[in-house]
């Protein structure tokens, strides 16, 4: 086993253990939140809305909620872990180690992506309680979930390195991420929007993620899934490359 692999595996393990050992902070919140979403939007309001795109409202919103949970948690995982390590300076143990910068980035991003995937599975599990969960295009579903959690794990690395206070994390999550998701066609179809707002919506990257996952689950999409996957994969590569450059420069880690 190469030294580099041992280093990577150690940091990944550390990152995974950090969130696995704190389920009340990491896994319980999305379960509770999504149970409430399904109860309110699906059961209480959904019955009045009827079908959208040929499926029940609950099945229609499920992919969006999966995306919301997955990207929130993958982003939060890397941003919090890195920022908390910087705040308490214990990330120095990683910084002063001989581990390569690429290994560090790969470890933080992959552990965060894993947390996003687990959250996605938990939300699907909760959804299953309320409605049958189809998987019309399972390979697309897997591909989209992996790509978007990687993308947001990578964005979380940037956030964690950039933040200089806990407020920054809140700002990123609550005031940037969440509005984009809510206006990303999670709870509605783009078809119901006026032409202008539909065009504006296409500039929101969340629309592509939600539609991609929706295509994987219920086989319905308003945007070509291959184009979405290509754009999101490119974005992930760009973001992870930025992560690597930031680590190489010691941004947020070295004075």
């Amino acid at each position: 086993m190469s030294q580099g692999f041992v280093q990577f595996r150690t940091l990944v393990k550390r990152e995974i253990l950090r969130f696995v050992r704190r389920p009340y902070n990491t896994f319980l919140p999305p379960i509770v939140t999504n149970t409430l979403y399904f109860a309110v939007f699906g059961v209480i309001l959904g019955g009045r809305i009827g079908e959208i795109a040929g499926v029940s409202y609950l099945q229609f919103v499920l992919p969006g909620l999966v995306v919301l949970g997955a990207i929130s948690d993958s982003f939060e995982n890397s941003s919090f872990s890195i920022f908390h390590g910087r705040w308490n300076e214990y990330i120095d143990a990683v910084t002063v180690s001989p581990m390569s910068d690429s290994n560090k980035v790969a470890a933080y991003v992959s552990a965060s992506a894993l947390r996003g995937v687990i959250t996605a599975l938990l939300i699907i599990g909760v959804g299953w309680i309320f409605t049958p969960v189809p998987a019309s295009n399972p390979l697309y579903l897997v591909a989209f979930v992996i790509v978007i959690t990687t993308l947001f794990g990578g964005l979380g690395v940037i956030g964690g390195l950039w933040a200089s206070d806990f407020d920054y994390l809140t700002v990123m999550n609550q005031f940037i991420l969440r509005p984009l998701v809510f206006f990303g066609a999670v709870f509605y179809s783009l078809d119901v929007l006026p032409a202008f707002w539909r065009t504006v919506s296409l500039f929101n990257p969340m629309v592509y993620m939600v539609n991609g996952v929706r295509y994987g689950m219920i086989g319905v999409t308003e945007i070509d899934p291959n184009a979405s996957l290509a754009v999101l994969t490119t974005a992930s590569v760009v973001v992870v490359s930025i992560d690597f450059l930031l680590f190489r420069r010691g941004y947020g880690l070295a004075d």
Binding site: V6, Q7, T10, L11, R14
Partner: peptide
Amino acid sequence: EHKAGYHGIPA
């Protein structure tokens, strides 16, 4: 153990 692992020392 983590510190050792960061230096490539097996588990």
